[in-house]
Structure formats: C-alpha cells, structure tokens
Simulated assay, not measured.
Amino acid sequence: MLSTAWALAVGFFLLVACQKEEEGPVSAAATAGFSALPLSVPAPADNPSTLAKVALGRVLFWDPVLSGGKDVSCASCHHPAAGYADGLDLAVGVNGQGTGAARRFRSPNSIPFGPRNTPSVLNTAFNGMMADGSSQPSAAPMFWDNRALSLESQALGPLANFSEMRGHQYSEALALDSLVARLRGIAEYQRLFSAAFGGSTPITAGNLAKALACFERTLVSTDTPFDRYLRGDKTALSDEQVRGLNAFVQSGCNKCHSGPMLSDYQLHVLGVVDNEKNQVSDSGPNGSYAFRTPSLRNLAFTAPYMHSGKLPDLQAVLRFYDPGPGPRPPLNPNVAPNQRDPLLNVRVTDPQAIIAFLGALSSSSFDQTIPARVPSGLRVGGN
C-alpha cells in the first residue's frame, strides 16, 4: 500500500511540475494581455473589401500620379523591401530619388525632410484592436499623434502634405481636387474606379481613399512565431525567446505594449530627443511632447526607431528605458524629468533575451508584389 501511494504521489508531483513548466510562459503571456492577430481583417461598414477595390488600391499605391510632381508614390516611403516603411530616420518625399534606406534628396533641394519617422503600414488594418479582438476600423488611430481615425482618413493626408507628396505644384486646399481631375483624365482609371465603385462619377477623393485603404488592409503579417505560439504551438518560440517574453513582462514593457498589436495606442511623454534635421523641435500634439506607443510588430524591418528615428537599434531602445551600466541615449532637453510618463520607470531584465523575443514578432510572409505597370504610364513607384 505504501509503495503504491508513494508512486501515485510521485506521479502527481511530476505531472504538476511538468504542467507548471509548460504553462509558465503561457500564463505570463495571458496575464500580460497579449493575443494573436486574427486571421480575418476587419473593415468599416461603409468600405467592405472587394477584389476590384484592392486591385485599384494597389496600382494607386504605386502610381506617382498622386504626387504634385508625378515623381513620388505611396510606395516611395512605404516599400515592401523595408517592411512597408523606408529604413530612414526621417522620410524623404518630394524631390527625392531611390527607395528604402538608399533614398536621398536630389540637388538643389528646397523641400524639408518629413518631420517624423515613417511608420510601417503593415498590420495597420488592426490598429486600435483590443486584447479581446474587438475593433472599430472606422475609428482606428493613425500617425504618431493619432490625428487621423481610420485608414481611409489617413490615406489622403500624405497626398496634400507639402514635403511628403504635394510639393510646389498646387496649394494644400487644391491638392485633392487636382488629383481627382488628373485621375478622371486617365481612361484606365475611369474603368478601374467604375468597376470598384460604380456610379456616374466614381472618381472622387472619398473613393480614392477607400481604394487605398482596402489595399492597405491586405498588407498583414499574422503568422509570426509569437502568433503561432499564442495559438498553441509551443515550439514556435525558442527557449531564449520564451525567457525574453517573461523578461519583457517582468520588466514592465507590457504596461504600454500589449494587445494584438503590442500597443495601447495612447499618447505618452517619453522625452525622446529631437532629430537635428528638423528646423524646430517636434513638440507633438498641443505642445505636449506626447506620442503614440508604436506597435512592436515587424520590428526586424523597421529600424531606426521612435518618432524622431533617433534610436538606431533595439539595444539603444532598451538603454533609453533603462541604461543599466552603459550610456543612455540623450533625452530631449525640452522635456523635464517630471513630465516623462511614470510608466517609463522600468528595469530591463535580460535585455538580450528580450531582443530575441522581439524577433519573434516579425514575419516576411506579407504581400510584397510590385505591379509591372501603373495606369498613368509613369515609372512604377516614382523616382
């Protein structure tokens, strides 16, 4: 009897121990509020996705006809080779040439850099999504300051922006009307807009935004190792990445970086140093120096980091929050220490393991198709 009872007790102990060993990382992820990206993409009720809209949005994304000088496209700063970002600290739009990190201004130049680091448009279809998977695509926050709500609203902003795509050709007030007139003069766009939207005058600024948004909602990466791990594949993360996940939570990084997109989509005062290429300090909305928590997804493709692009790699990002024994990247002298968000009071444990974990948030499975031609007949992608 004793030997049988002893064997049962030992067996129960081993079972519990194994369960704890397996469930520890899963429990940490669950309590941190993480969740895998959904496999279906939400869309606003007034802009459901169709193949015709996506096809139209794709060529519009790559067609420089949408820029004032007909030489800049959306893809100039959101290129698939750079994870639909550009690999630069600050964007080079009008009067630029090249793609990705190789993009440079032509000379002479009277156009300033874009004032902020270019966010990737990958997975922006999920912006604002909560941990339970609920979302409001018609009110999804966009840009570093959340100034636009929805991909439809975001899509039109760069077209009218002086340094991004408009240039000197027309005023901001006339930008969208000028572009609509251009598109209406191209027979192939007349056919494509009619196929996508119907109606007697399908080429409008609103439909232009809807087509671009529909295409951007196809640019998703939902099969990262972390997504597979959260869906139950416990082999998807290495031992170091699991250790990094736990260190990420223990360090407090999940206070702001949680949910499916690893962002709370709130504005926080971090005190990141300004980019010296800007002529004036970027003080953010209402002079607050508060900027949105960026998503951590696809970080492998989107360095440098932060709104000013001043942190070159993930090591620098972690040192910004907790310098440890090494030097801390410079802070913004315009932000007093007591202005910085108290959520930044973190102590980074096992930084190399955290960086390994962050590597599990990227996947190269996203659509990287470049069209062979665009309806305007201009060079695909622009200069």
Rank of each mutant, 00 (worst) to 15 (best):
V269C: 03
A32F: 06
D313K: 11
R217A: 14
G57C: 01
A360T: 01
A155Q: 05
R340P: 05
S221N: 10
C253K: 02
F320H: 06
L361A: 12
R379K: 15
Q279R: 14
A43V: 14
W144P: 09
G68M: 11
L90N: 01
D274T: 00
G185Q: 13
I203F: 10
F197A: 10
L318S: 03
V272Y: 13
L344I: 05
S153T: 12
G309F: 03
P112K: 11
I355R: 06
S171K: 09
P327W: 02
G309M: 04
G324I: 01
P327A: 06
L122A: 04
A211L: 00
T124Y: 03
V380N: 06
F113G: 00
L179N: 11
L151K: 06
S221F: 03
V348T: 03
L14Y: 04
R106W: 04
W144K: 08
V280D: 07
C253W: 03
P325Q: 01
D367E: 13
D63Q: 00
E188K: 11
M142H: 09
A160I: 04
D145R: 01
N47T: 05
A17R: 07
I111K: 13
A102M: 11
G244A: 12
E21S: 10
T31Q: 15
W62F: 15
R347W: 01
L361V: 09
L270P: 00
S364Y: 10
P42W: 04
F143Y: 08
D233Y: 12
A173Y: 08
G381D: 14
Y84S: 13
P48A: 11
I203W: 10
F226K: 02
A36L: 02
A205N: 07
